[in-house]
Nucleic acid binder design. Structure first.
Lengths: 179, 179
DNA sequence: CTATACTTACCTATCGTTAAGTAAGGAGGC
DNA sequence: GCCTCCTTACTTAACGATAGGTAAGTATAG
């Protein structure tokens, strides 16, 4: 037996980097292989297809968001500020991958990302305002959650703690609840 | 002489539709030509390249946003609510094209769209809070403007007037100003 | 006759993917 | 210590499909 290599992880790192920089669609397997100093078919030793490589990067994040939502829904009572903070933390942690997901939604349509994102928004609103929110409530929620997400992307140089406070305060103001 | 045709406009209509539905990158010239019942090289009679076709759809919107911002900056005094309403109207009017721009930012990197969008955000913040906004002010602005944009995309079935009131009210709340 | 608005045929480049071959190196028998 | 075997981790070569793009020819209407 030969000892295992860390090539699979390195492929994912390079893919993440290139996907974020130049887009999923515009990144060819050749680009990734060149960057690693290996050949294109070598990628097929580690991933059965290009799609599997993309999925291996995106899927864990989708699963984590799913788990976060399920956890919040299981609570007897939702605390809005805690929900917003959890939402911020998740999006801050994965901001790079989230940028690439948002900036190429159509590419990831095969993975069902679009429907998932729409579904999340709906469930988040319901967590705050119950099953039949008014238009005013729904718009406030879109502004608050969308705004938090935007903030994690928009201010790369601000320390996490400081940004979390500012973003969650802003979201609270949009929702009309005490910070 | 033969009379001019409206084919050029029809190409743009079909392109807009397909770009929005399946993405810019995933839409080939063949797709567009097939949909119109003409051949691929016929597109080259009306547009010198694929990129020129894409640009012909995106550029007018970029120009309009630029003009909107310049107009607001030329005002002696900026009225926040009026700024938010103007921002809403612009984004509502072009929401289809804006979806395709946002959902494929990397594809449009050649057109400089990413830098433009970042520049706009900066100028919008400065319109509200002057040249050196605090972090709290900058995050509020991102939440407010990003939120308005999200609302124009998120609620396709809500009448424009109703949505404008709800979205702008929500943005005002995020900014902490009277609706 | 001439400009318009195409079509037909074809080019080259690149894509994801596969088949087949190979160097490296630990495991097990002797 | 050495040989054999098998797995790991690749490489080389090539495939078919499809992309954007071009050159040359043609039907139509003023």
């Amino acid at each position: 037996m030969r000892r295992p290599s860390d090539t699979k992880q390195r492929i994912q790192e390079v893919a993440r980097e290139l996907f974020a920089k130049q887009g999923v669609q515009r990144t060819s397997l050749q680009d990734i292989a060149d960057r690693l100093g290996i050949t294109k078919p070598a990628l097929y030793y580690h991933f059965s297809s290009r799609e599997e490589l993309v999925r291996s990067i995106v899927q864990p994040i989708l699963d984590e968001e799913k788990a976060f939502l399920a956890g919040q829904e299981a609570l007897a009572e939702v605390k809005p500020r805690a929900l917003l903070e959890g939402y911020f933390d998740f999006h801050y942690r994965h901001r790079k991958e989230i940028v690439l997901m948002l900036s190429e939604l159509t590419t990831l349509a095969d993975l069902g990302v679009i429907d998932l994102v729409l579904d999340w928004r709906e469930r988040l609103v319901k967590l705050l305002y119950g099953p039949e929110p008014t238009l005013a409530q729904a718009t406030r929620a879109v502004i608050a959650f969308g705004g938090i997400q935007d903030c994690t992307i928009q201010f790369p140089d601000v320390p996490e703690d400081e940004l979390r406070r500012a973003a969650v305060d802003g979201a609270c103001a949009a929702l009309g609840i005490a910070p």
